[in-house]
């Protein structure tokens, strides 16, 4: 009989635990971001062809040339990518070396996009099969990764870069440069 009573209160305890869990989850905004697990690891080997004539393609070797870089994943068909263009321009003006990975894009669309919103990239690789995106653990566009001079991924920014993100990214790039 004692075991029975303990069992009953166990059920009550489990129910209360579940309700408490609901309450805590409800009280904070839902975090839907899927973060890359590649932070602190080297960029996987890849080599992407150029997508526009005036910028060379991108390979993992380019990312390990001794200088930190901002790797920006974008696409002409992605609306927030256009929204982050001024912030990318501001970063470029601060001397940041930005390289681009264009996801599933046609050369003509990409050229038009860059003409319209500016071209802050020193190199742009065409990732037509999202292969590089998958390899570095990115789950959407736009995303930006800080990569240090040795080609190690240091930081991931998910979503479009807004004004308040610019100093954060500059700081991360500085840390990566040390």
């Amino acid at each position: 009989m004692k075991g029975f009573r303990i069992g009953l209160w166990l059920i009550v305890a489990v129910a209360l635990g579940v309700l408490a869990l609901f309450a805590t989850q409800l009280s904070k905004p839902k975090d839907d971001l899927v973060r890359s697990q590649m932070i602190g690891k080297p960029v996987p080997q890849f080599k992407l062809d150029a997508i526009v004539p005036d910028r060379p393609g991108l390979s993992s070797a380019d990312l390990a040339d001794g200088k930190p870089k901002l790797l920006n994943i974008f696409a002409s068909w992605c609306v927030p990518c256009a929204a982050e263009a001024p912030q990318l321009a501001a970063l470029e003006a601060q001397g940041v070396n930005i390289v681009g990975v264009a996801i599933r894009d046609k050369p003509a669309d990409a050229s038009q996009f860059l003409q319209l919103y500016g071209n802050p990239y020193s190199r742009i690789g065409a990732d037509n099969l999202s292969a590089v995106q998958l390899a570095i653990g990115s789950s959407g566009v736009p995303e930006s990764f800080v990569v240090d001079g040795k080609g190690i991924i240091r930081y991931q920014h998910i979503g479009d870069i807004q004004d308040r993100d610019v100093p954060v990214l500059l700081q991360k790039l500085r840390e990566a440069g040390q």
Binding site: D32, V34, R104, L129, S130, A131, Q133, L134, S139, G140
Partner: peptide, 23 residues
């Protein structure tokens, strides 16, 4: 599927799911 969140990549028309199937 990462862009649709509650489907498997086998059940999705999302482009990224297609690329994952290709992989």
């Amino acid at each position: 599927c990462l862009t649709c969140q509650s489907q498997s990549i086998a059940d999705s028309d999302a482009p990224m799911a297609g690329d994952m199937r290709h992989q």
